[in-house]
Design a protein around this nucleic acid. Sequence first.
DNA 1: GAGATCCGCCTAACAGTGTTCGGATTCTTG
DNA 2: CAAGAATCCGAACACTGTTAGGCGGATCTC
Lengths: 245, 245
Amino acid sequence: MPATRHTTTAPVPLRERRRAAAAQEILDAAERQIGEQGPAALSLRAVARSLGMTVQALYHYFPNRDALVTALIAKAYGELSDALQAAADAERAAPSSAPRLVAVAEAYRDWGVARPEHFQLLYGTPLRYYAAPAEGPTTQAVRRMGAVFQRELFAGFSPAQLAAADVPPLSPPYREHLEQLPLHAQGDLPPAAVALFLSAWGHVHGLVVLEVFGHTAYLGAHQAEVFRTSVRMMLEDVHRRIPAA
Amino acid sequence: MPATRHTTTAPVPLRERRRAAAAQEILDAAERQIGEQGPAALSLRAVARSLGMTVQALYHYFPNRDALVTALIAKAYGELSDALQAAADAERAAPSSAPRLVAVAEAYRDWGVARPEHFQLLYGTPLRYYAAPAEGPTTQAVRRMGAVFQRELFAGFSPAQLAAADVPPLSPPYREHLEQLPLHAQGDLPPAAVALFLSAWGHVHGLVVLEVFGHTAYLGAHQAEVFRTSVRMMLEDVHRRIPAA
DNA sequence: GAGATCCGCCTAACAGTGTTCGGATTCTTG
DNA sequence: CAAGAATCCGAACACTGTTAGGCGGATCTC
């Protein structure tokens, strides 16, 4: 079997373009359905129905449901990353980096609260038998998202400062593993800083997860303030662990 | 229609007992299936099959799938609470309260890591169309679980100390709402302490959620150390905010 | 002990899901 | 224009939760 079929001069993206357009249309319809009915209600038949075609047509654009879901997840991660980046950019004029980190965290929460169905798609397990691919477009999108947060968390600190962060002693193999981790957003991040980042990220994520999944409903309308207070404390605590220049 | 049918002397728990035994058997089979196949694969038909009966028989013990799921969730919360309490009790001899809180946090993680399917049942949304009841046995179990954590987090501090905790200013309505919250484990907890508790709980939960749901798989076998380090820092940070006696 | 009642379980069916096979239609390509 | 590929649909399979109707046996009353 030779490489491809379009052996003529032009790259022949004629048919390909229609394919891509149709696939995009399917993705949009699926996303719409998730936003309306929740991720668990995602149904190939319903997607096809809303597009005026039958189920089997979808199989010409996605090999199976999991592939469609993976594409949806990757897209959602991308949009979430964009939201975080936009929030950070909006606070670029701030004199200190603190408001930028707060803005990023708030953007993370805002995205989850505004679109709980999509948030559940990313962080719940709403689709029975769905297994996320080990390495794919999603992992890359996740890394990008973490990079935004990490950048603003440590903005304004030198590598020397970060390396001297007051962190419990890390075991040598753990240090080594952290050093050769592919989440170095910009320049090398010392292990102590990575440990701080992981803790902070878990902190922010946990607060949002509890709220979006309804486990802190008893807090009512004050959930925004709970989050704001917690993030502020978290930022203070992290900065307190980084020595002054 | 009069009250009940058993108008004889004895309370006639004869049939009731069989009913309860059968219901328990169903619950066990369902839990076994969750442990083996994951919560998303929970199927009434499969449960009935493993018990040698047909689907419709289950409907004589649970009105529908959601009721069975609710019972499973309540049971899982109970077991999780027991695990936390047991971990705290095991460290009762410790001179300081710090190791108890660490032990409770580790127990939370251990439970989630050891039984990821059950953890997903509690904190994911694995069942399509399942809607948790607003007030029921689950909320009570959740409160009990939070109480264990909260107790160990603030053990050894007086109400006066907790009230003077160094926390960002809380808005008056937020303070008021926190004061009349039904999660006062023992004695009244000042709003500042509640804010600290909520932040700490979100922190621990977020770390565990990320790990159990596979979002930090890139950390490999070091995830236990990530957690231990983060919890230690969290505890230091919380205690640093509570003034000395 | 005999009769009435109710409980427990079954067979059958409905609407829904993801997925596959085979044939028909349409549209691009040489 | 003819060849051929890409697209699409009808039908089917195995699975899900749920409901209706009917049968047998255990239980309770007299």
